[in-house]
Amino acid sequence: MHRIEVVEGKCIGAGNCVDVAEDYFDQGDDALVIVLKEQVPEGDVAEVERAVKACPVAALRLLGA
């Protein structure tokens, strides 16, 4: 299992993570990231990695990847 971590105070609400991996990320009313599922099974790692890379401000990390 891998785990999603949000780097505190970095998110600008660009929404790329939601666009790439909507099962794992959402945006709140303030547009900022909400992690829907922290744990990422092996089969979804590539998709979540793509979402992490799409973040324009490097606010996301995938630990154990």
Binding site: I12, G13, A14, G15, V18, E22, D30
Partner: peptide
């Protein structure tokens, strides 16, 4: 910048 962007971002969310 961040204060102003935060005012606008909610209108442009993916949802």
């Amino acid at each position: 910048h961040d204060i102003q962007r935060a005012m606008l971002a909610p209108f442009f969310t993916v949802k």
